[in-house]
Design a protein around this nucleic acid. Sequence first.
DNA 1: CGATCCGTTGAGGTGCGTCAACGGGAGTGG
DNA 2: CCACTCCCGTTGACGCACCTCAACGGATCG
Lengths: 248, 248
Amino acid sequence: MSSSLENSHLHEHERAVAVEPSLCTACAVRGLTFCEALGSGDLTRLVDIAQPVRIEPGQPLFTEDEASVALFNIVSGTIKLYKLLPDGRRQITGFLGSGDFLGLPFQETHIYSAETVTASSLCRFPRKRLEALLDDSRDLQRRLLSMMCGELAAAQEQMLLLGRKTAKEKICSFLCLLSQRAARRGHKDNPLHVPMSRTDIADYLGLTTETVSRTFTQLKTSGVISLLEGNKVLMSNIDAIADMADGC
Amino acid sequence: MSSSLENSHLHEHERAVAVEPSLCTACAVRGLTFCEALGSGDLTRLVDIAQPVRIEPGQPLFTEDEASVALFNIVSGTIKLYKLLPDGRRQITGFLGSGDFLGLPFQETHIYSAETVTASSLCRFPRKRLEALLDDSRDLQRRLLSMMCGELAAAQEQMLLLGRKTAKEKICSFLCLLSQRAARRGHKDNPLHVPMSRTDIADYLGLTTETVSRTFTQLKTSGVISLLEGNKVLMSNIDAIADMADGC
DNA sequence: CGATCCGTTGAGGTGCGTCAACGGGAGTGG
DNA sequence: CCACTCCCGTTGACGCACCTCAACGGATCG
């Protein structure tokens, strides 16, 4: 599925030049991240430890059980998080996009693997230094706590999906989720861009690629979506899709 | 399934007497909770807003989408958290026990319903007042952040279970989880107490009661567990169960 | 002692997984 | 420019793990 532990390329990025303060104040996704919570003083300190990183599609960022040395803000691109069973079965626990925070502070090892789906640019923070900053800045910590609450809420919603929804409901929920997130980020949300493969979608929804494919054609045949060029999905009846997502 | 919004009994508990400071310093579960992070000054402030609550089995604490007015520490007993689909399908997203924190700070509404499984005693905190305390105490906030990270890790593990494990693997994982938590709390972990009903277990694991029951008898027949009186499970071969939990 | 609830067991059905084949697009090499 | 390969998405045929429906026994309770 991937080249596993071959992530030595990351260390090359550590030599990247320090971020200019202007890059943060001008950051396109700053309003979405925890950086928003920072006053100019703390922002300077954050800039000191931030390292811009650009990564190609399909590259691992870190692996489950590996020691956690860095945390990230995602500036652009899509990242997938996943856990594996010994025999190779995979569960993707989330897709992250611009503005999302990647990694768990105050945890010594990663609890999941992370890999790019599309070409991505990230803001990399050495963990220990970010934790020190967190200890000093109550605003930053509170903002992060609030983001974690949001992630926990999303995780619970995903449990409902995985445990109790049918294939059609899962696909519809997935489309609604992607659409909402695109809108929140200011991206186009109706001809919706779906950058992940059928395999990734299947491993996110607890299905197989065949079932994902069949369900898409079923939705296409019933007229609620159209599949366009460039991995785009046109939702011709969003209300119907939202209803189907909850089994109405 | 439950008496839904009938939780007016909660307000009676609000009249409960204030906690004595000695009750906190002597609290049996203090080392497990975020209270551990408090110095004596902050502890006094926490005592001021804490309200002891005792609730019978099968009683709702709050409901999904309801405004969040209070958060809780669980002193003893078991609580279930769940989400519902419009047609009544239910997913239990977690079971909480002594030392666990219940509720999401800085969120205006609850994202799940909570109900007692067994008779429980809780420590109730009005949300706004606890948030004010959080804003003042960095240690408290950090401890809570760290607990949220643990919950998020558990949620990811549960997604792997729901999306990719078989019925037998789910049941074995469940037994291992309960056993580990019992040990961490200092409860007996091998003749393991399983207080929840087959229906609750099914709704937690994304199965039906029949499948849960059949899988238990299957494990019993193959000799790795025995079902004892009083909802106790004896695991005669824990290693085998742990292996089966991951499909080995 | 009827009523209700819970756990168990059986018989039968089905939604989704498994296995296999096929076609189109991208990359590669001659 | 054309083969050739590889990868990905799609579709079909078939099987099975789990769900559905139903019956039953034991425990609890008014």
